[in-house]
């Protein structure tokens, strides 16, 4: 058995996330990848507005707190000023796919050499469970009390599917962390995303289907089950794009 220690890339801070929330798992996976690649010294993380707003206290690498939705632009600024450093963003669905849609799409079209960790839990967690751009049809939230009516509130945004059309994207992969097998796959995807950044391959994004037991009104176990029975059928797991068209530095 390997020794199960806290990764160096995580601080000793006590995580404020709710019981059963999968943010902690994803933080750990990112930190493990940073440790294994030995890049903490040269990594800058960008955290969003949302539940992970204080991720700057949890990661041991240098961190920048962005305004709502602008993380890919902030990361672009860091990367362009420091092309040899590693830059990642950690964003939720409201941040990335609603207010920050333009920044996400355009960082992707530029093939910006950054890694985006995208937490999709179909809800605005921090503000108390409003409809997110990824909220499923029929899903009850604070602002869709009768269930998301697609004739009024439109349809969910499928981020990996959209990104799969963009030439600058090196990796768009959807994973989840609801059981050990999937956690291992998620970690492999995150590792691949950082490796692509290392090789200057372009924009890499890993979408992690996640839970929000508090706002879903579920126990942690029920929440994991919901990911499997409701979310995965709508948001199928898998690799949506592998290999960017743009590959300037390599050619």
């Amino acid at each position: 058995m390997p020794d199960f220690k806290r990764p160096h890339a995580l601080t000793d801070a006590y995580l404020h996330y709710c019981p059963g929330c999968t943010h902690g798992i994803v933080h750990r996976l990112v930190a493990e990848v940073i440790d294994e690649m030995g890049i903490e010294n040269e990594t800058i993380g960008v955290c969003p507005v949302g539940c992970s707003v204080m991720a700057y206290d949890y990661f041991s690498c240098d961190m920048i707190e962005a305004s709502h939705g602008r993380s890919p632009a902030v990361a672009t600024g860091v990367k362009r000023g420091n092309p040899d450093k590693f830059v990642f963003t950690y964003q939720g669905d409201g941040d990335l796919a609603a207010i920050g849609t333009a920044e996400t799409i355009h960082a992707a079209t530029r093939g910006e050499n950054i890694t985006v960790i995208f937490i999709n839990n179909t809800t605005y967690g921090m503000t108390g469970g409003q409809m997110a751009p990824t909220t499923l049809p029929g899903q009850v939230t604070q602002t869709t009390p009768y269930g998301r009516d697609t004739s009024e509130a439109g349809f969910p945004v499928k981020v990996c599917e959209i990104l799969s059309q963009i030439d600058g994207v090196a990796l768009a992969e959807r994973v989840t962390v609801i059981d050990p097998a999937n956690i291992r796959k998620a970690k492999a995807a995150i590792r691949k995303a950082f490796e692509y950044q290392k090789k200057k391959q372009g924009f890499s994004l890993v979408e992690v289907l996640s839970t929000c037991p508090t706002n879903w009104g579920m126990t942690p176990v029920q929440a994991l089950e919901r990911v499997k029975t409701e979310m995965i059928p709508y948001y199928p797991l898998g690799v949506y794009k592998d290999g960017a068209v743009r590959n300037k530095e390599e050619n």
Partner: peptide, 26 residues
């Protein structure tokens, strides 16, 4: 140096935020 035409003024100022945050004159 780097010249980047951003997708919006909003993005451009946030690129400045990130770049300045990393200690670079921008």
């Amino acid at each position: 140096g780097t010249f980047l035409q951003a997708e919006s003024e909003v993005a451009a100022i946030n690129m400045v935020y990130g770049c300045a945050g990393s200690g670079i004159r921008c």
